[in-house]
């Protein structure tokens, strides 16, 4: 199929490859991978819309959303008055500790066994089904490539690699002299696997199921922690309650009157420093106000900025 004419240049070996390889291997492998990816995505959509998506019960939703509520309190708590913040903090930490928001409060201290919890079981089955559906096409294609397209080099990589990759990339063609840049079809398959991910995002929009990589990482995570699947909300709640207890409250509106008055030039910037950064920020802000305020205030501010 190919005659090999080794050039005398030591720098880069150039092989003459039959154009038939390009037509019948290079392009087809790429096309097949793209099509299979699209097919997988569409099938996932079809399967996903089926009876497998069981609607979560109100209690389950409540369980997971209350975590977000704690996070929102932590993130934006400085915008509400201290007493309200304290009320909510106490209420939520108590609720988390007592397990008020858990789906079945009885199972609070038992480790969640995915076998007995029916919804957890379903979720695990779902995940496994999806993973298997993803892995099968990949293995099939790999087998197909190994069967039909082994024993010859396919393409030259434009960039050099170390010798260690030689055995992996030149699977069927064990020659001691050939450059590592000449690779077999299996490595072309891997190249496509990585490179086509962003193309799939382009073609199919975000969150498509054609992405084999994501499933592989998910698989490896799952095998690492088999009980990870139905999340243990009690632990999460306890963690969140600890986070909440540690959150301080520094009220946004603490010195808002002074801020407002100084914005209109009625007040020199208060030298009450609560933190060095705020001081610098406030001074900068005052400087900006001084230079860019409306014409009515320019007179006042100029006088004031002279004093700084």
């Amino acid at each position: 199929m190919s005659h090999q004419v080794l050039s005398t240049l030591a720098e880069s070996q150039s092989l003459y490859l039959d154009p038939a390889i390009r037509d019948w291997v290079l392009i087809p492998i790429m096309v097949v991978m793209v099509l299979v990816g699209v097919l997988r995505d569409q099938i996932t959509v079809l399967l996903g819309g089926g009876a497998s998506t069981k609607k979560a019960t109100l209690k389950a939703i409540r369980e997971s959303k209350v975590l977000m509520r704690g996070a929102a309190l932590r993130n934006y708590g400085n915008h509400i008055p201290p007493s309200s913040f304290l009320n909510r903090k106490n209420y939520l930490t108590n609720a988390y500790k007592k397990g008020d928001y858990l789906k079945n409060p009885a199972s609070m201290n038992q480790t969640v066994n995915p076998m007995t919890d029916p919804q957890g079981m379903e979720m695990m089955m779902e995940g496994m089904k999806k993973n298997i559906a993803m892995i099968i096409p990949q293995t099939v294609i790999m087998g197909w490539i190994n069967f039909f397209f082994s024993g010859f080099v396919l393409i030259k990589l434009p960039f050099p690699l170390t010798l260690r990759f030689k055995s992996m990339l030149q699977r069927g063609v064990e020659t001691p002299d050939m450059d590592v840049t000449w690779v077999s079809s299996l490595s072309w398959y891997f190249l496509n696997l990585f490179g086509l991910r962003s193309i799939f995002t382009l073609l199919l929009g975000e969150d498509n199921a054609a992405d084999g990589m994501r499933e592989m990482t998910a698989m490896s995570q799952m095998t690492a922690s088999p009980t990870g699947q139905p999340q243990d909300f009690h632990k999460l709640h306890l963690a969140e309650s600890e986070n909440l207890e540690l959150t301080p409250h520094s009220w946004e509106l603490n010195d808002i009157e002074h801020r407002l008055l100084s914005r209109y030039g009625k007040r020199e910037q208060q030298k009450v420093i609560d933190s060095p950064e705020n001081f610098i920020e406030n001074n900068e802000k005052n400087a900006i106000e001084a230079t860019s305020s409306s014409s009515e205030h320019k007179g006042k501010n100029r006088r004031k900025s002279g004093k700084h």
Binding site: E252, L253, I256, E257, R259, L260, R263
Partner: peptide, 8 residues
């Protein structure tokens, strides 16, 4: 304070 916040 809250009215001042709205003005801010």
């Amino acid at each position: 304070k809250e009215f001042c916040r709205v003005l801010e």
